[in-house]
Deep mutational scan, measured.
Amino acid sequence: RGFLEKAAVKKMAKAIMADPNKADEVYKKWADKGYTLTQMSNFLKSKTAGKYDRVYNGYVIHLD
Rank of each mutant, 00 (worst) to 15 (best):
A49I: 11
Y52R: 01
D32W: 07
K45P: 03
A7G: 07
M40S: 00
W30M: 01
V60E: 09
I61M: 14
A23T: 04
M40C: 03
K11W: 07
N21V: 08
D24A: 13
V60I: 09
R54L: 13
T48W: 08
A8C: 15
D19R: 04
T38K: 10
A8G: 09
A31H: 13
M12Q: 15
V55M: 02
E25C: 15
K47F: 08
E25H: 07
K45F: 08
D24M: 10
R1Q: 11
T48A: 10
T36A: 03
P20E: 07
R54V: 14
K28I: 06
F3Y: 13
H62M: 06
I16M: 05
G50D: 07
M17A: 04
T36D: 08
G58W: 03
Q39K: 05
K22G: 06
F43K: 02
K47L: 06
E25G: 08
W30D: 00
N57K: 10
A7W: 13
H62V: 05
A8T: 13
K45C: 15
T48M: 07
L63D: 02
M17H: 04
K28L: 06
Q39G: 03
H62R: 02
D24Y: 10
S46A: 07
G34W: 03
M17N: 05
G50S: 06
K33R: 10
A13V: 04
V55E: 02
V26Q: 05
G34D: 03
Y56P: 00
A23M: 07
W30S: 00
Y56H: 03
Y27S: 01
D32E: 14
Y35G: 02
T48V: 11
K29Y: 14
F3T: 07
V60D: 03
A31G: 04
I16Q: 00
R1W: 05
V55Y: 03
F43Q: 03
A7L: 15
V26P: 00
N57V: 09
G34T: 03
P20S: 05
D24V: 09
K33L: 14
T48C: 12
E25V: 08
D19G: 03
A18Q: 11
L37E: 06
L37H: 05
F3C: 15
Y59W: 03
N21I: 07
A18P: 00
G2H: 15
Q39R: 05
L4E: 13
K47M: 07
D24I: 10
I16V: 11
E25R: 08
M12K: 04
L4G: 12
N21H: 10
A7F: 11
K28P: 04
L63P: 00
M12C: 15
Y27K: 00
D19S: 06
F3D: 13
M12F: 04
M12G: 08
